[in-house]
Lab assay of single mutants.
Amino acid sequence: MEVRTIKVFTTVDNINLHTQVVDMSMTYGQQFGPTYLDGADVTKIKPHNSHEGKTFYVLPNDDTLRVEAFEYYHTTDPSFLGRYMSALNHTKKWKYPQVNGLTSIKWADNNCYLATALLTLQQIELKFNPPALQDAYYRARAGEAANFCALILAYCNKTVGELGDVRETMSYLFQHANLDSCKRVLNVVCKTCGQQQTTLKGVEAVMYMGTLSYEQFKKGVQIPCTCGKQATKYLVQQESPFVMMSAPPAQYELKHGTFTCASEYTGNYQCGHYKHITSKETLYCIDGALLTKSSEYKGPITDVFYKENSYTTTIK
């Protein structure tokens, strides 16, 4: 009895394709271990004539594949690729409408935090270190965002349907971005203890939790000093293409032309909904596939993004 075979390709990165001759009487799992086709788990399936010449994702289970996976995804987590594939199996079914010149995501599976993050990423200057993220990001900007969303979920250790947080998501993504040249110098002034300067680099240099107003941050924000008295913390120097200011959701007025974009969060910790506000020729609110415009805006804002380049204080 002759062994019926077909020729397929296996890959971990969709760049390096490895030619395989597979036995049609055995499952993919018996031949390769966990195997995925377009995100779908085909591990328990036997090869079919229609699979001839198709590319299958496999887990990096030998040295060659491990090197290829690390170079593309910059992670050695053995569960990463499987999590990416199972997320992709959902995100490829989502709709990605162009809204006001940006790629958004039609609401499904509690994905409003991903839509808000995706919209924000198209408006701030950011370059990702893992080629996987950078490639998928370019495709997302062009309207094909399924891979990018699935990668975000995998890097953030999230599953489809789980509630997510924009600030946490951005923080994970910033860790995989090139923020080497970003720098922030802060000064804390206390009447009792004097003053202390701190220099922050990388992710810490672009994120701040405690106030939404970048102007206020430049002037000074009140913080408790270690001595128990009130101290003032203010920005001395900022070198970065953008800054992200966050605070627990509270009524906040966004003035046209003073910011790049913002995240609105309605609801409580267990259950809520994100919308995205962007400042173009007027203010726009993007909620999944829905767009509304207004000249002014007041609502429960939790993150505001500002364009920056270089700032030095005039406070002496």
Rank of each mutant, 00 (worst) to 15 (best):
V3A: 14
T5F: 13
I6W: 05
V8H: 02
T10C: 12
T11I: 15
T11M: 07
D13H: 02
D13P: 15
I15A: 06
H18R: 08
H18L: 02
V21P: 11
G29F: 10
T35L: 08
T35W: 08
A40M: 14
A40W: 12
K44C: 15
N49L: 14
H51K: 02
H51L: 04
H51V: 05
E52S: 13
E52C: 11
T55H: 11
Y57Q: 05
L59Q: 07
P60C: 06
N61H: 07
T64V: 12
R66T: 09
V67F: 13
V67K: 14
D77L: 05
F80V: 04
G82D: 15
G82P: 13
S86N: 14
P97D: 15
N100T: 09
L102K: 08
S104R: 03
C112L: 01
Y113P: 02
Y113V: 03
A115T: 14
Q123A: 05
N129F: 03
L133K: 05
A140I: 10
G143M: 05
E144Y: 09
N147K: 11
L153C: 04
Y155V: 04
C156W: 00
N157H: 11
N157S: 06
G161S: 01
L163P: 14
G164H: 04
G164Y: 03
V166P: 06
E168V: 12
T169K: 04
T169M: 10
M170W: 02
L173R: 01
H176L: 13
S181K: 14
S181C: 07
G194V: 01
G194F: 07
Q195K: 14
Q195R: 11
L200T: 07
V206F: 01
G210E: 02
S213Q: 03
Q216D: 12
K218S: 03
C225I: 01
G228K: 01
A231V: 02
L235C: 15
Q238L: 01
P241K: 08
V243I: 03
M244K: 00
M245T: 02
P249K: 00
T258V: 04
C261P: 09
S263P: 02
Y265L: 03
Y265P: 01
Y274D: 04
K275W: 08
L283V: 10
D287Q: 06
A289P: 10
L290G: 11
P300M: 10
D303S: 01
Y311H: 07
